[in-house]
Simulated scan of single mutants.
Amino acid sequence: MATKPQPTATTSQASAAAEARAATRVTLIGMILDLVLGVIKCIGGALFHSQALLVDGIHSFSDAASDLVVIAVMKVSRLEPDQGHPYGHQRFETLGTMILGATLIAVGGALAWDNLERLFVDTDAPLPEWPVLAAALLSVVGKEWIFRYTRKVGLAIRSELLVANAWHSRTDALSSIVVLVSTLGAMAGFVWLDALAAVVIAVLVGHVGWGFTWRSVKELVDTGLPEEELERLKEVARTTEGVRNVHDLRSRRMGHNILVDVHLVVSPDISVSEGHQVGMQVVARMRESLPDIAHITFHIDAENDEQGRPTSLQLPSRKTIQTELEACLSRPVSPGRLRLHYLRNKVHLELFVEDRGTGPEAEALARAVHSLEQHPWFGSLRIWHGPD
Rank of each mutant, 00 (worst) to 15 (best):
V179M: 01
T240I: 02
R367K: 13
I29G: 10
S312F: 09
D114M: 06
S169R: 01
V246M: 04
A9R: 04
W377S: 00
I40V: 12
A156Q: 15
P376D: 11
A2S: 12
P360L: 09
T123K: 13
L95G: 04
V140C: 11
A364M: 11
G211D: 14
G45L: 01
R337N: 15
E129D: 10
L349G: 06
E241F: 07
A102T: 08
W167N: 04
P81D: 05
L104P: 05
S317Q: 08
L162K: 06
W167L: 03
L372T: 09
I32G: 09
I321G: 04
V121F: 10
A106E: 14
L372V: 05
V179P: 15
F48P: 13
K75I: 01
F120A: 09
L381C: 05
T240W: 10
R252N: 11
A294K: 14
A106P: 12
A65I: 04
I40D: 00
E231W: 08
H341E: 09
I32K: 00
L127R: 06
L119S: 02
V132H: 02
V333G: 00
L95K: 00
C42N: 03
A284W: 11
P387H: 05
T150Y: 14
R252M: 09
K319H: 08
P387S: 01
H247N: 02
G57P: 11
G38E: 15
D122W: 14
A195W: 08
V163I: 13
S267N: 05
L33C: 10
H256S: 11
S169L: 00
T320R: 03
I321V: 14
M1V: 04
T213L: 07
V217F: 15
L119G: 03
H247S: 03
G84W: 07
A164C: 07
E229N: 01
T3G: 13
P226C: 02
G279H: 13
V69N: 07
P268M: 06
A110H: 07
V278M: 10
R382S: 12
L33Q: 01
